[in-house]
């Protein structure tokens, strides 16, 4: 298959699905049909004694060895050709780096812009370089039939093209622990001009720098801003909240203030909020970054614009 003729990854893969499913369905109907027919026709009530003691036929064996061989070789070839289309990135593709961590996505663009959703221009091929920071993750776009693991210490890649503007699911497909199923976001395919405008916008459009940090550090994968429960406690209204924590196995109740927040970011296992798993990694942030985040949380963790795109809400 000439890679230049491939218009999209789904157009390369779907015909292979049709071919294999079609051939398999024919085989299955044939096998099952013959089996059911023999069982009815030669049921002991109709055939009290077997009418044959035939125990083999060389020509039949040769036939049903050779024919499946040819069929599976055809399946192998089409499967391979379709796979090559997934590996050959069209020239001029936009490059984005996807960084996966437990349990959030971050996408960075050539100009340094970063986002928790994968914004792409519709109609233009996108090459995604895949980087994992902790354990294995999987970059899976069902709509585009694209999947590739993110492996620590190794850069993989995948490519796709969103032929139409729209929002498409992006799942983590490789099991990665407590928040695995919450590690989902979307591909946002924008018309070309809109995408360029988004890409060149300074910052995130007047967002609080503390919120940008939370997003970039992947905090919002587990801590919601709108009060919905996730893997960790929500940030909504966190300042001044009274929490019950386990400190060295002993329960105590305290009020969320600056020293508590600092400790929780730098040494998350020191005070574990009761009812939540001890899974948060330590984030060695600079002092001004901590100040910025705490300043944002002081403001009550104001609800974000829309869905934060960093995780599925657990109701």
């Amino acid at each position: 298959m000439d890679p230049n003729l491939i218009t999209s990854t789904q157009a390369a893969v779907d015909p292979v699905f049709m071919f294999i499913f079609g051939a398999c369905l024919l085989l299955l109907v044939g096998i099952t049909g013959a089996m059911v027919w023999f069982v009815i026709r030669y049921h002991r009530s109709r055939a009290p004694q077997p009418t044959s003691q035939n125990d083999g036929n060389v020509w039949l064996e040769i036939a049903w060895t050779l024919l499946p061989t040819l069929l599976v070789l055809a399946m192998f070839y089409y499967g391979w050709a379709g796979y090559l289309a997934l590996r050959n990135v069209p020239k001029g593709a936009l490059e984005v780096t996807a960084t996966a961590r437990m349990w959030s996505w971050n996408f960075t663009y050539a100009n340094g812009r970063s986002s928790s959703k994968l914004y792409v221009p519709a109609g233009k091929p996108v090459k995604v370089n895949l980087v994992a920071t902790d354990v294995l993750h999987g970059f899976y776009l069902p709509a585009f039939r694209v999947k590739r693991d993110l492996v620590p210490g190794m850069t993989n890649y995948a490519w796709f093209v969103a032929t139409k503007p729209g929002s498409y699911d992006l799942f983590c497909s490789q099991y990665c622990g407590t928040g695995h199923s919450a590690m989902i976001t979307t591909v946002e395919a924008l018309p070309s001009a809109e995408f360029t405008a988004w890409l060149n916008k300074e910052g995130s459009g007047g967002e609080h720098p503390g919120k940008e940090l939370l997003e970039k550090q992947g905090c919002l994968g587990c801590h919601s801003l709108d009060g919905s429960p996730k893997v960790g406690p929500t940030f909504k209204g966190i300042w001044g909240r009274s929490v019950t924590v386990l400190t060295g196995g002993r329960e105590r109740t305290l009020t969320v203030d600056e020293p508590y927040l600092r400790r929780s970011i730098l040494e998350p296992k020191a005070d574990l909020v009761k009812g939540y798993p001890p899974v948060m990694p330590a984030s060695p942030l600079k002092d001004e970054e901590l100040k910025s985040i705490i300043d944002f949380l002081k403001s009550g963790g104001a609800p974000s614009l829309k869905r934060d795109g960093a995780g599925l809400e657990i109701k």
Binding site: A12, V13, V16, F17, I20, M75, F76, Y78, G79, W80, A81, G82, Y83, A85, L86, G138, Y140, P142, R145, V146, K147, R148, S173, Q174, Y175
Partner: peptide, 10 residues
């Protein structure tokens, strides 16, 4: 088949 496995793997 390599092409179809990618979509349904995992």
């Amino acid at each position: 088949a390599a092409a179809t496995d990618i979509h349904v793997h995992d």
